[in-house]
Design a protein around this nucleic acid. Structure first.
Lengths: 219, 219
DNA sequence: ATATGTGAAAAGTTTCACAGCC
DNA sequence: GGCTGTGAAACTTTTCACATAT
């Protein structure tokens, strides 16, 4: 089993975790551009962080840099990939083939980051069998079978809020460990084996509107 | 001009701001259900927060509750709506009619929260004029004119990462104050009149994968 | 009896600033 | 010269616990 490097006490700050994927995205971009080293100052500028913060975050997992030089892009990429579990590919299922689900089924960003869409589902019988972006909609009856067959740990939920809780309970029983929820509802999970991440687009627009309203008086 | 209540020093904690939209969503839900009062404990449970945190957050804007009783749903809803700028409707434009843009143009969650899609744009000439969800795609040439005409302050960007920075600069010049960015790139804004909020779905999936990998050892 | 509002303590996070190494 | 790694300080956020109000 992949244990993190021995020195690391197993308490990664939540704030650091939230930024880890951000670092990885930028580093992968740099690697594609052929850059071999990067400085904390440069990374920070690109992501809206201070250089000290970048160094602190990275130092939590080990000493990846070289004083006077910077960080090896390749090495950092590998290290963060390991830490985040991007060193392997993840089979993912998508449930809900409405407007949003259809768009998500064709979104290439997922597989670029190591996530393979192995099946798409919808509860509407008339949609079952319809192809979207080269994949046929399956009946929800087949949910458990598909999860077992592909050892699916992650599910994307693009269903109405009213169906979310029920589906999450079912997914949890089936062995799924993480759900990316697009409905504007908070999910309750009893067991610790299930993580949920919410993406609420209207909520983000509201936060934006608040920033705009309060723009003048602050900074 | 709507100034916040006089006693409030103009420093709302960032963490509180991030939760405000969450409270509003839940309160609106309660109001629709006909509930008249709500307790901090109940709200917190619904949102995964402690009761103390809910009370602290709300107390920053004033004293909305009644000791021994709780909060009036109606009053709280109104107050938070005021604070967040949801008391009025916002005209919004959407740029980019790929997979995601098409889904977003049909997403009803935006207008439910006070955002009206007044125009949709794409840079591809062959898409201009095509209707999506009852609205025709306009040429980007008309961007500035539309922004002026409808006094648009918010834009949703569903374009490739490579076009984002250029478009944001243009939007800023045109008078737009906020952008909801769906591309996996960080945007740099020079002026303080422009706020950006990112929604990176692949990034959230990665964070989820990290949680799942680290599930066992923590809590 | 019950629930808010809030000082004060605790926990978490960021920034400073500089020793250490290239 | 330049840049990392990290203690210590500064700042932010959360939690505790209880006076206060109904």
């Amino acid at each position: 089993m992949p244990k993190r490097d021995p020195k690391t006490r197993d308490q990664v700050p939540r704030a650091t975790v939230a930024r880890l994927a951000l670092y990885l995205r930028e580093l992968q971009h740099l690697e594609r551009l052929g850059e071999t080293t990067v400085k904390s100052r440069w990374l920070g500028q690109k992501l809206g962080l201070t250089d000290a913060q970048v160094r602190r975050d990275l130092s939590i997992f080990g000493q990846f840099g070289q004083r006077g030089v910077g960080y090896s892009v390749r090495r950092l990429c590998g290290a963060i990939g390991d830490i985040m579990g991007t060193d392997r590919r993840w089979p993912v299922i998508l449930i809900g083939m409405g407007n949003l689900g259809r768009a998500l089924s064709g979104y290439r960003g997922f597989e670029k980051q190591g996530f393979d869409l192995v099946a798409i589902f919808d509860s509407a019988p008339e949609l079952v069998g319809t192809p979207f972006h080269g994949r046929r909609v399956e009946s929800l009856d087949r949910l458990e079978a598909v999860v077992r067959k592909h050892k699916v740990q992650l599910a994307i939920l693009a269903v109405p809020g009213s169906s979310v809780q029920e589906l999450v309970d079912r997914l949890e029983k089936a062995g799924v460990n993480g759900v990316l929820n697009f409905a504007p509802v908070r999910i309750l999970t009893n067991s610790a084996s299930m993580s949920v991440m919410d993406v609420d687009m209207a909520l983000e627009l509201q936060r934006l509107a608040f920033e705009v309203v309060n723009r003048s008086e602050n900074d």
